[in-house]
């Protein structure tokens, strides 16, 4: 049986919001150490990898491994009913044919409950090796989102090139071209948190990526910062780390090439 309680239902809401345009259904694999989801888009170009650690839950117990096959349209409907500061308790028995959601207001004066039918999903899983990428860029997620939004109007392919001093995001369209260059810096945002751009380069890198997917993966609500891992001719990794050791949401995107 699985039982997990998140202090904020909004955590799961944001995750589902961020991936629902890429995947329509996926298996949540639950075990003692947490919940994992791996799923590709229908074109097998992009992959979503979600890892939620049991330690990041307020309460968590899973005494037997269970796979929960979830339809994201149904899940979105359920999560829409949660207020942002509600807590969320997830429950499933060992049969794995239903998932139960309980949202509870902070004051405990409102409790809502939803039951969702699960499905059997035959998914192809990929082995993703740990890679030491040539380029690691850490930046504000709002900045990354702004760059993708701005440049998406100019063309379908984003070229990202990085050297030791800077990273350049560029697009060449039919009638116009656009680029944004970022250099390492440190600024203070409105919450007085330090937002820095750091660029670590072992080897100069130049990759071409689908603008449509990048725009979807650029998401400022998931975490304050985002990490981009790049290397010539291999899929790029876009990573969001959740606070309080809850886990990570990774997007892998295959490059464009000749």
């Amino acid at each position: 049986m699985l039982e997990g309680r998140l202090t904020h239902a909004s955590t799961l809401k944001k995750i589902v919001e961020a991936v629902k345009d890429v995947i329509s259904e996926a298996n949540f694999d639950c075990n003692d150490s947490g919940i994992t989801l791996q799923c590709m888009d229908s074109g097998h170009v992009a992959l979503v990898l979600l890892q939620l650690n049991s330690d990041g839950f307020e309460d968590y117990r899973c005494d037997r491994n269970i796979t929960l096959g979830i339809n994201f349209a149904a899940l979105t409907k359920v999560l829409k009913c949660a207020a942002n500061d509600d807590s969320l308790t997830l429950k499933a028995d060992d049969s794995g044919d239903r998932l139960n959601f309980v949202f509870e207001s902070q004051k405990g004066d409102r409790v809502s409950e939803f039951d969702m039918k699960l499905m059997t999903i035959d998914a192809e899983l990929l082995s993703i090796p740990d890679n030491d990428y040539d380029v690691t860029i850490k930046m504000s997620s709002a900045e990354f989102s702004r760059i993708c939004k701005d440049l998406a109007n100019f063309g379908e392919t984003m070229n990202i090139s990085a050297d030791k001093e800077s990273v350049r995001f560029g697009v060449e369209g039919d009638v116009s071209a656009a680029s944004v260059v970022l250099r390492p810096n440190e600024t203070i945002d409105e919450d007085e948190k330090i937002v820095s751009t750091s660029i670590m380069v072992k080897k100069e890198t130049n990759v071409n990526l689908s603008m449509k997917f990048l725009k979807t993966f650029a998401n400022s609500s998931l975490a304050g910062s985002v990490t981009l891992e790049l290397q010539d001719d291999i899929p790029c990794l876009i990573k969001y780390v959740f606070p309080n050791d809850l886990g990570v949401l990774c997007f892998y995107l295959a490059p464009k090439g000749d």
Binding site: I128, K256, G257
Partner: peptide
């Protein structure tokens, strides 16, 4: 334009 590759060209199927 450039051709889009697929992830299976880079990662093995489990």
């Amino acid at each position: 334009g450039l051709a889009q590759t697929q992830l299976v060209n880079f990662f093995k199927i489990q």
